[in-house]
Design a protein around this nucleic acid. Structure first.
Lengths: 193, 193, 193, 193
DNA sequence: TGATAAGCGAGACGGTACGTCCGGTCTTGAG
DNA sequence: CTCAAGACCGGACGTACCGTCTCGCTTATCA
């Protein structure tokens, strides 16, 4: 995505309009019914303009629904329960948005056949989060709040998985504070010595 | 799929060949690249023969990858740990097969836009399993091994979610007995009083 | 088409109803749009009952539109002009009926790929007619009204061809007595010494 | 078939390959067995590419077998016999080719149900030819070689019809110079005063 | 300042896959 | 062996849409 020096520069308006439209249409029509042509028409541009920016629908949707900055602002660690709560809340916040609910299964389906895409999608989610969780759990072990044989991957799978299944099976308003509290409770007790 | 008395009966060979081919192609090409035309060609039959049996690709894949009988043989309850282990193992056994890994995100993506399909897919998984789990947890509560405020749905989400995320992110051989033991440990401790 | 002695005898009503319906539908929908299924439905019977009697649509149409007896009643020869007129009138009578106009190109198209059918269709038309014409021309030669080098085939081609092209290109009511007279005039002069 | 300024231009190779393949397959399989799918496969292209160019099989066959330019080069009139011979030879030349023998009944059958197609098919044949014949006959009348009451349509029907029936019933090699001479003789005498 | 290069809207193209129609066959149960 | 009823198989249909390409124009940088 490096800007070449020569030639007409890309119109940043188009980037913004396309990303915005993609989210809108995702919520309306779902991932599979979403087409580049529809996005182009609704964003007031053309298919080639979109294909110039994103190689596939999956890349576009990924960028539109899970912008990179969403994964960057994890707070400093406090006590264990608060940290777990932060993680569960992050998972819910990321996955429960309508656009995310619509996009994720589609992205996963595409990832199944495209390793590079899978790496990109998962890499981003895991990226900072995984290390952050590892740090929190290590601190917990040191403080005696977490069993030493608990692996970061297992906790990550529990948290992410529960959030994913909940968003896939529950109505949106059934994933609330009480749901989060319940999950936090289960996780914190599960990893306790 | 009720047999009508009148008219030429269906060729059972075709049913079998199509289901077999569907699983094969899923593992090879993935859900999105899978097409009815390819299945028909490889199974030695034609598209109409397939459309006569299954209304959409999703229905066919569902039946091919998650046949109904897979969900029917949950054993009698024993002690709590064994029961949780049964559930986790069932989740892994169902989701870790290559065809299932390829099929599930696709089915979820289709379900997002087709409520009836969602009900079918989830209904089957939840069908017996949910009630069975509820019974086991109630028994656990009665025996004092489970906190009374633990909900079946939450446990179900943890187990199914962990299995799903693990199959989506780990290599197949990294989901072994040790992984299961670890999950069972986390869950059992999480729900204990 | 020999009736076998054993078993239930065929229902002659069905033969008649199908032939009648075939002519009706030919005039309405044309040869290519005509289907065995439509004929069966309208004749109040079923496809298998029709296929039991006629191997193809072409055979059925042939029998329905050009029954064998139509070609059998050529009158005794009189004078040459009258004989030519008989032939031209026969051609017009056979080809100008709506069902025949609709059927003939279709039958010819099928005949192009099916030699046996071609022999049947042409054989019937040529059958008695060709010999009859040959006799009349021979008599004309003997009487000095026809050049000896005129071949029967050429005259046959002129008469049949003119009738065919006229039915294919003219409206039905433009093929009248005056048209016949004109053609007879051209032919009689053409073959005269 | 007007070239639009905008959009990707058509691949002329495909036009040529499809027309060539259509003629080949017509000679091999006949009109009714000819399918767009087979043509596409054999021409190395696809059905939509064909449907973009020709709305129906009939239009494609028409253009492939009777290209427009075939009807454009009628020579200046000379004496009557030579002119009639020109017309008969043109008829034979157009209709006796294997592809034309296979195509014509099919085109006529389709024309029976599609007036617009009929106008196109007949219009092309009649187009220049009819006027040309009219001019020649008028000249013949003026020169005293043709009866004034001879109509152009009747002569046209005789010539076209004879050529058509001959190609439909005779083997290809039986329509030779001698056949043409015989027909010319019959026609010229038929229209003479 | 002019040449070069890339982006843009417009829109048709090539080709994959779709879901359907229907032609001809087969099965059942009764006559 | 026929009949009515009806489903089945498979060839072909005509269409939707994806991603690419071409055009004529615009907008920037580089020589």
């Amino acid at each position: 995505m490096l800007a070449t020096a020569v030639g007409r520069p890309r119109d940043a308006e188009i980037d913004a309009a396309v990303l915005r439209t993609t989210v809108d249409l995702l919520e309306t029509t779902g991932y599979l019914q979403l087409t580049i042509a529809k996005i182009a028409a609704r964003a007031g541009t053309t298919k080639p303009a979109i294909y110039r920016r994103w190689p596939t629908k999956a890349h576009l949707v990924h960028e539109a629904v899970f912008p990179a900055q969403d994964f960057e602002d994890l707070p400093e660690g406090r006590d264990l329960r608060a940290d777990v709560r932060t993680l569960v809340a992050l998972g819910v916040q990321l996955l429960a948005r309508p656009a995310a609910r619509a996009a994720l299964p589609g992205l996963l389906a595409e990832s199944a056949a495209d390793g590079a895409l899978a790496a990109e999608v998962l890499g981003q989610a895991a990226g900072g989060t995984f290390e952050w969780l590892q740090g929190r759990l290590d601190a917990g072990i040191a403080a005696g709040n977490v069993r030493p044989d608990v692996t970061t991957a297992a906790v990550f799978e529990l948290v992410a998985g529960a959030a994913f299944v909940a968003t896939a099976t529950r109505p949106a308003d059934a994933i609330d504070e009480r749901w989060i509290d319940q999950m936090v409770d289960l996780i914190v007790r599960g990893i306790a010595p």
